[in-house]
Every structure is written in structure tokens, then in C-alpha cells.
Amino acid sequence: MWSILLSSNTQWVLLSTMILGIAAGMVGCIAYFKRQNLMSDALSHAALPGVVIAFILFAEKQLYVLIIGAAVSALCGALFIQAVSTSTRISEDASMGMVLAVFYGLGIMLLTIANRMVSGNQSGLVSFIYGQAAAMVRSDMYTMILLALAVVFILFLLLKEWKVYLFDGGFAKGIGLSVRGMDLLYIGILVTTIVIGIQAVGVILMAALMITPAVSARYWTKTFAMMLLLSALFGGISGAVGTLITALWSGLPTGPFIVVVASSLFIFSLLFGKEKGIVLRFIEQSRQRKTIEAREVG
């Protein structure tokens, strides 16, 4: 069992899912304050048809080909959401729900067709639904790590820009920050993180890896920078531990295990978090009650 851990391939897989978790956790913080938690869900589902179409067209399973397909398809989804919510009376969350269902349905349909068309080679595509980190080859991992690091770098470099953009967009515009530029950048890093993550985590659960660390981090800190760091930490731990579990028992899908780890961290934060965690709030409340009762008696 431990020999698996010591193999350099496993170590590379661990490293790439950890860095993926870090990037996803940080991007999740931005989505959280954009109040677009459903956006990452919609876009990760929207990536599926692109993956399959790229596979059908080029008949190979190289990650960068599939990533480009996924990115194009996810961006189409994003454009669709924006077009529907600005030009019709359908609200943003409804249009996200629509895009999610329509694109995912299309993706599954194409997947069935692809499986019939190309024999033998097809089995790998199904791993894009639940994620199969062990199926990644070394060059895939390099691509993943490089892109994830780029996303992390952009987030850190533009820390104060993100802050003012998320807190007060009108003011940001007034001081000369291009809000449209930030919008595009946000969609850019969101889509990048999603597409590099779908091979390891899968389209269904990719969104959970973005949102769960962010909401967990919210329970521990008062500042945005610290929230980004904590969310990165939670995401990184989820990615690494989830992969570790699936590496020890081969054949397990990675996505669900990563998300289970992330959810455990969330439940812990929800209960024991320093900022309005349930237990702490209960203790503070009962302490307050006691002081008031003591005063009334005395």
C-alpha cells in the first residue's frame, strides 16, 4: 500500500490536485462575493459537451485539446447566461439553471454517441463526469499545475483590485478601474479553474470544490486576504487528502472523495468557526443570558 504513495506518479497526482484545490478555493471566494455560487456549477456542467466534441473531432484524449474544447463550451455557457439574463426577463439564477441542464444534457447525449463511434478508446471520457485523477498522465499534470499557478498568481497580484471590485463596483469604476475588464478576468480564471479541474474532479462536483472551501473560510476570518488564504488551504487539503484516499484503493472516482473531505472541513467550520460558528455562538449567547440574569437577581 505505501509503495503506491512513494511512487513518483502518485506524488505528482497529489501535487496537481492539491494546487488545483488551492486555485479552486481562491476563485470560489470571488464567486461567493459576486453572489454567483451557481455560476461555477453551471459552467462546469457546460464544459462537458465541449470535452466530448473535442474528443470526437480530434480523436485523442490529450488534456490540452480537451481543455480547449471545455473552455470554449464553458464560455459559450457564460455568454448564454449573460445574454438570457440581460435581454429577457428571466433572472440570472434561472438562466444559470437552464444552461446547466441544457449543456449537461447535450454533453451526456454526445458522450453516448462518442462511445458508440470510437470503440476501445472511449472509456476515459466517462471519467470526466466524476473525475479520475489516477488516469492523468504526466503532461496533463504539468498543464494543470501551470494553469492553476497562473490563476493563483493573478488572484494575489490583483488583491486590492478584487477587493474594491467586489465590495463597491461603482466606486471602482469611479477611481478608474475597468469593471468590465475585471468581469472578463473573473470569467477567465473561473473557466480556467473549472476546465483544468474536470479531469481530476469531474464536471458534476467541480463546483463543490470551489464553493465549499470559500464558505468554510468565511467562518474563520474577518479579512478578505485571510479568507483567500484559508480557502486555498481548505481547497488544497481537500484535493490532496481526497486523492490520497483514492490512490490507496484503485479504481475509485476522485471527485466524490475530494468533495467529501471539503464537506467535512465545512461541517467542522460551521460548528467550531471563530466567526459565528454554531458552538461559539451558543456559548456567547448563554453567557450573555447569564450576565443578564445575574443583574436582574442582584
Binding site: 486590492k160 477587493k163 474594491v164 463597491d168
Partner: peptide, 26 residues
């Protein structure tokens, strides 16, 4: 420009000093 107080998300995790520093960003 000082927008209406209700136009921003006061739940955003940041401090008073940090918000004031935004005025210096440019």
C-alpha cells in the same frame, strides 16, 4: 463619489481602515 450607503455589501469581510484605503488605490 460617495454612493448611497445601501448600495454596497456591508457583510464583505474587511475593516473600516481597509475601506478608507480604497480611496487611495489610484
Amino acid at each position: 463619489y460617495v454612493p448611497q450607503r445601501g448600495s454596497v455589501d456591508w457583510d464583505f469581510p474587511t475593516t473600516a481602515l481597509d475601506v478608507v484605503t480604497m480611496g487611495l488605490y489610484r
